[in-house]
Amino acid sequence: METTTNLVEHRQVRKRSNLWDRITYHKYFYLMLLPIITWYVIFCYIPMYGLSLAFKTYDFSKGITGSPWIGIQNFRDILNDSQYVNSLMNTIIISFGKLIFHFPVPILLALLINQIARQKLKKIYQTIFTFPHFISWVVLGGIITNILGSQGVFNQIMGLFGFESMSILTDPALFRPLIYITHIWKEIGWDSIIYLAALAGINPELYEAADMDGANGLQKVLHVSWPGIKSTVAILFILTVGLMMNVSFDQIYNLYSAPVYIVGDTVDTYILRTTMSVGSNFGLLAAAGFIKSVASMFLLLFANYVVKKFGEQGLF
């Protein structure tokens, strides 16, 4: 019995020793990771203790730790708020809309750019499509308002041709399509970069072999390019689904207004508006964010499960 125990302890010591040897050998890589790990610890993990506010009534004099517990009362109150329920549904609908309409587009763009033979032309197209990402939504929101607003350029042109003006920014039926279109236009180039990088890593001999077999462009995409990037697509799909509840706050906040709250108000914008009006009720707002975080966790687990079912390697 003692021999077995000593053997187990010896193996554990060897594992710890081997791990430390690997860390020491790759010490510069770990030093490069240190700033990123520090950022996540400070801004992502330490603030998590504030989630306890969802189960408390916040008292300014006692702080977060000293505030009294009230159980799940905040969750009951927030779920009875019709505005919050509406914002939660809008968040889900807009998120799924972006997943359906936006997620495949950067993949298609990367595949199309990869078919361009001339490297200079390829870089020009990539630069053109990527540039809008660097325009902030504050600036872009002002541009879109000046174009599509009630007195914007679009309606002035419509008036010149005798058509009635359209209030696109305040029309609930048009607001969500506007969100999808502007998001695609702004982010398509940036999101295609990682797919282009994956395509660049495919062995050129595979394309040469396909050419020798008489494959056309579509066949090369289906049998060479797609198999080479599908694992990357799977990982990014998991990450995208996990972040679905974090709908682009900047975009919606800079484009929406009271007439489209019914279709455009999300959990993040609801929390901001409610904070401005009832800022002292931090427990209620923490409960709203807690629900969103739990939903994000289940979506991430579900996406990872689906990807593994299709034969790809998930995140865990």
Rank of each mutant, 00 (worst) to 15 (best):
E2K: 12
T4I: 11
E9K: 14
R11W: 14
Q12Y: 13
R14H: 07
R16Q: 10
N18I: 08
L19S: 11
D21M: 04
T24R: 13
T24V: 01
K27D: 05
Y30I: 00
M32K: 05
L34E: 00
I36H: 11
I46F: 13
P47A: 09
M48H: 10
A54E: 01
F60Y: 13
I64L: 14
P68A: 04
G71P: 04
G71C: 01
I72R: 03
M89H: 12
N90I: 08
T91V: 09
I93V: 14
S95L: 03
F96V: 14
G97F: 08
L99A: 11
L99E: 01
V105L: 14
L111P: 04
L112A: 14
I113E: 05
I113W: 07
N114R: 00
N114Q: 06
K122Q: 15
T127Q: 09
F129T: 09
F131E: 00
P132C: 06
H133V: 07
I135S: 07
W137R: 09
V138F: 03
L140Q: 05
N146D: 10
Q151M: 10
F154Q: 00
F154D: 01
F163T: 07
I168K: 08
L169W: 00
P177G: 08
Y180I: 07
I181G: 01
I181V: 14
H183T: 11
H183R: 00
W185S: 02
W185A: 08
I188C: 11
L199Q: 01
A200R: 00
I202A: 03
M212G: 03
M212S: 09
M212Y: 02
A215G: 05
L218W: 15
L222E: 02
H223L: 10
S225Y: 02
L236I: 10
T240A: 15
L243W: 12
M244I: 02
M244A: 12
F249G: 06
I252L: 15
Y256T: 09
V263C: 01
G264I: 02
G264T: 02
T269D: 05
I271E: 01
T274W: 08
S280R: 07
L284S: 04
I291H: 05
S293E: 10
S296L: 11
F298E: 07
F302Y: 11
Q313N: 09
Q313Y: 06
